[in-house]
Design a protein around this nucleic acid. Structure first.
Lengths: 214, 214
DNA sequence: ACCTGAACACCGTTCAAGT
DNA sequence: ACCTGAACACCGTTCAAGT
């Protein structure tokens, strides 16, 4: 007996599904998350998930949202100078994404319909306007920062190169003689490029358009 | 008769497969490209593709490569000032990607193993070094530009907002009162943000690190 | 309300069989 | 060499059936 159809205490909850899905994404990648596999991880049969989410993408949206919810946005509401706020936010934003790299491809495409993404857009926009930026500029700043951070978390630049001294024929790629060395320093290369770009972006905004701000 | 197993003239070629795959990606999106569907589009049965590519991802890699091959990189080899070169390259790069938006999520993750991606990395690196940048800076500049362009082509910022005046409760999102208007101006918003960011990036590189360059 | 197994219409890939 | 159909081990999702 006891091949129970409905337990008196629900076996699943949205929270538990999302938590286990995130753990699975982190440990085995986005491709490992099938409804059957995720259900097995939860000790349940595949279709059960559909009592809590209407679609697999909705589960992944919730996973992405919890990741974005980790981003610190307090600097937009506490009087921090807008340049410092953008730098600190950018670093926190990138850190949240690189902590869960396998969800980034999903997260980066998706629209900002996820509550945490909207809260972030709201905070950035509000912070820039309060700093004196015209609304049109504030919108652009939020957008271009997202481009840069998402792009940097999405695909490692350094990972694109093979760690093999003979991989890049000088006849084909005359300047990539040392490129194979990048493979050994992935994080440093990507983090260094991110830092350089982030500072350049903020300095450039200040120089080119800063007269519009307060 | 004539249920032919092997025709005397091959029905398929790598070029034709890639061309039809790109057309399918463009018209119906990445999800529409299954081996069976693509084969049907080519007038052939599913497994036939495996005579020309060892894997579906290899087909998509080839598709992505033809897209990246459209990017103009001539400015790195003809004495153009490095600032102008980065601006022109960035615009050409983004234009190539936004011409085929559905392949971008695949392209942006993938490593740079694709020949066109390597050729581009080679040209940018060579151009920056020739302009006087130290190699470590040249590498970072290539990487951070890729982050920004890929991020901007990947997910529209404006598309994240719904075109509905009541969509954003001021209690939840105090500064998004006008956000629903973004939906109607997607391209302009995204293109404006890209231009602003691109100029800021180049101006910032010049201001902060330009003394290292020639 | 919330779980189950069975079923539907798909996948990517392998492989023996045909010419 | 290059195509075929059959087969394997999967998918996301629906649905009637159980409690």
């Amino acid at each position: 007996m006891c091949r129970m159809a409905r337990p008196r205490k629900p076996l699943l909850s949205r929270e538990r599904i999302v938590a286990v899905a995130l753990a699975l994404v982190d440990s085995e990648g986005l491709a490992a998350v099938s409804t059957r596999r995720l259900a097995a991880e939860l000790g349940v049969s595949g279709p059960s998930l559909y009592n809590h989410f209407t679609t697999k993408d909705e589960i992944l949206d919730a996973v992405a949202d919890t990741v974005v919810a980790q981003v610190d946005i307090s600097m937009f509401d506490n009087g921090t100078d807008w340049r410092t706020a953008l730098l600190d936010w950018g670093r926190s934003y990138r850190a949240a994404l690189t902590a869960h790299p396998h969800i980034v491809p999903f997260l980066a495409q998706g629209p900002g319909r996820r509550p945490a993404g909207l809260r972030m857009a709201d905070a950035v926009f509000g912070g820039m306007v309060k700093a004196g930026w015209p609304p049109a500029h504030a919108t652009r700043i939020g957008a271009l920062m997202r481009y840069f951070v998402a792009g940097s978390a999405l695909g490692s630049f350094a990972r694109g190169f093979v760690d093999d001294a003979g991989a890049y024929d000088p006849a084909d790629y005359p300047h990539l003689g040392q490129a194979h060395l990048l493979a050994g320093h992935q994080e440093q290369v990507d983090e260094g490029a991110f830092e350089t770009g982030l500072r350049a972006l903020v300095a450039g905004l200040d120089e080119l358009y800063g007269e519009n701000a307060g």
